[in-house]
Every structure is written in C-alpha cells, then in structure tokens.
C-alpha cells in the first residue's frame, strides 16, 4: 500500500512543477510591469528601473522561476521572500499583507463551504440515483432524469442569483450575504455549489445501478433466495458505487473551483472572493498565489481520491497489498 502511495506521489512531482511553471510563465508574459505597479503614477523611468533591479526583475527567466520556487534575497531588505516551497510569494500590491497569509486565513471558510456542498450532494444524489434506477421508465424516473439534466446545464452563478431572488428577496427565508459564522447563511451557497455535482452524481448512480442490476451475479443472488431489498442494497449497490465514488472524488476538485464563482455571488469570505478581488484590482502576487494554491490543493485532493479508490475495489486493492481477510463481508449484519 505504501509503495502505491509513494509511487503516486513521485508521479505527482513533475506534474506539480509543470503547474507552477505554467502559472509563473503566465505572469512573466503578462503585460504590465510589477515595478511600475508598485510605484506612484508619476515615477520616473529611472526609479522604475531601480526598483526592477531591487526586485530581481532584470534576471533571466530561468533565474526568476528559480526565485519563484525557492525564494529571493534581494539587495537591500525590501524584497525578500522565501519562495513557493515555504509558501511565501511576497506581499499583495493592494494590502501589503503576505499573500499566502491572506489565503491561509480564508481557506478554512472555503473548506467549510465545499465540505457542506459535498455532503449535500452525496446525500441527495445517491438515494435519488437509486430510486430512479429501480423505478426505470416510471414518472419518478423521468422527473429525476430531467431534474438532473437541468442541473448539469445550469450555470452556478446564475443559480445562486436565482436562489437569492426567490429565497432572499421574495420569501425572505435566507440572507443573501453569507458568512461562516452564520450557518443559515451558508445554506444557499452550499446548495448552489452542490447543484452541478448532485446532478452529475445522480446520473452516474442511476446509470451504474442500471448496469449492475443487469449483471449475472445479481441473477445468482436472486436464485439463492436473497430478498429484493438485499439484492439492491447489499449485492448491487456496493458494486454500483465503485464508479460513483470515482466520480465523486473527481468532483471534489471541481467543487473547490466552483467555490470561486459561488463565493462571489454571495460575497462569502473565502479564497474565491480573494481571487476575484485580486483580479479586478490587478493585484498580481495575490492572483498568482491564489491560482497556484488552488491548483496544488486540487492535485492533492485527486491523489487522495486515487488512494481511497484502491481501498474500495478489491480488484485494485489486491494488486497492491495482497489479500487480507476482509472485515465487513457478506455475513456482517446478515439476518441469521
């Protein structure tokens, strides 16, 4: 098992480096001079050039990338930073606070929202997916299918605003501004964020169940005298959930990214709003740090899901750790 994890981590390194390289390259080629940005409007060209030198902006691309990763100890004291590997990419143009500091402060808020959305999506999608599959071709199935189709087509930021219009403006059930201290205010953003995922997961659960229920081993289970309820929940569901779990795992990353848009709509203080504000104010260090941070978390989350997946499907698990007597087998909880 450990070997598998280590192998995956090693595979991750060049990918992460590639990501940082891309993000760095983007800022390098972006028009606009960071030195000029930091100085007052009327500065002379000499002053700008001097600042450039102090910031290390005259160095070649590769050196700057190196500084980006490992830090820069500029002449004088003004522009030192320890680099990405120490989570230090300097200070914001706007607030002059360390960029990662702001991110780390706000990240827990985003995590809370994402977590809530994840729970909501799982709790809604799996039961509805099962119901839809077991009642194929009935009105219930049609209703769920259409709802899911609409769910995957709805732009999240629009949904958020529509929910605000219905539930905040007209019905006054929920506030339109969200903040982590007030749980009631997080419900609408969580629902908005969860919508797309829920729809995708419901569709996945439904199609997976339909596929599994047609399998021969389900016929064997019925021929053994297993009652229909156990056929669905014990024999079929666990097999059907395997691809669903993969999808859920992949979606966690998307949730994180979706948070960026949704937070803006509800003015929720998470990394999404930081990023969007930074973009609007052209606060390059902040933008840079935010993008890199989210990309890194996204990659780590996907790695975590990969590893988790190995625990669930015995065929994959067996490849990596050899066979172990399973707890929680078929007889657990069986009515005897």
């Amino acid at each position: 098992m450990l070997k598998y994890i280590i192998r995956r981590l090693i595979h991750l390194v060049p990918v992460l480096l590639g990501v940082t390289l891309i993000v760095f390259t983007l800022t390098y080629i972006s028009p606009g001079n960071p030195a000029r940005m930091m100085l007052p409007q009327d500065s002379t060209d000499e002053q700008v050039a001097e600042l450039e030198k102090a910031m290390g902006l005259d160095e070649p691309f590769v050196m700057q990338y190196f500084h980006f990763l490992f830090g820069y100890d500029g002449p004088g004291d003004s522009f030192d930073y320890k680099g990405l590997w120490a989570l230090d990419l300097g200070r914001s143009y706007v607030s002059n606070r360390p960029v990662f500091g702001t991110i780390l402060e706000r990240f827990p808020n985003t995590m809370l929202l994402t977590f809530l959305a994840l729970v909501l999506s799982i709790v809604i999608s799996i039961p509805f997916g099962i119901i839809s599959a077991t009642r194929q071709y009935t009105k219930t199935d049609m209703a769920v299918t259409i709802a899911a189709l609409i769910g995957i087509s709805m732009p999240a930021f629009w949904l958020g605003m529509m929910l605000i219009w219905v539930f905040s403006v007209n019905l006054r059930w929920f506030p339109s501004l969200a903040n982590p201290a007030n749980l009631k205010s997080i419900i609408l953003p969580a629902l908005t964020l969860a919508a797309m995922n829920t729809a995708v997961q419901t569709r996945m659960t439904r199609s997976s169940m339909l596929e599994v229920v047609r399998q021969d081993y389900i016929r064997t289970a019925r021929a053994k005298g297993v009652d229909e309820r156990n056929v669905i929940y014990r024999h079929a569901l666990r097999n059907a959930l395997i691809p669903v779990v993969t999808v859920i795992g992949l979606q966690v990353g998307q949730l994180l990214v979706g948070a960026v848009l949704t937070e803006t709509v509800f003015s929720y203080p998470g990394i999404g709003t930081i990023m969007v504000d930074a973009i609007q104010r052209k606060d390059t260090p902040q933008i840079l740090a935010s993008v890199v941070f989210v990309a890194l978390v996204f990659a780590l989350v996907n790695l975590g899901v990969d590893i988790l997946y190995a625990f669930i499907d015995p065929r994959i698990k067996a490849q990596y750790i050899g066979v172990v007597r399973k707890k929680g087998g078929l007889l657990n909880g069986a009515k005897i």
């Binding site: 021969d216 081993y217 087998g329 078929l330």
Partner: peptide, 11 residues
C-alpha cells in the same frame, strides 16, 4: 460473471 466480484467466495 455469475459471482459477485466484491465478496469472497467463502462469503
């Protein structure tokens, strides 16, 4: 395909 892949044969 007659046996459920996620349970042991003993089970």
């Amino acid at each position: 395909t007659s046996l459920n892949p996620i349970f042991t044969v003993g089970d």
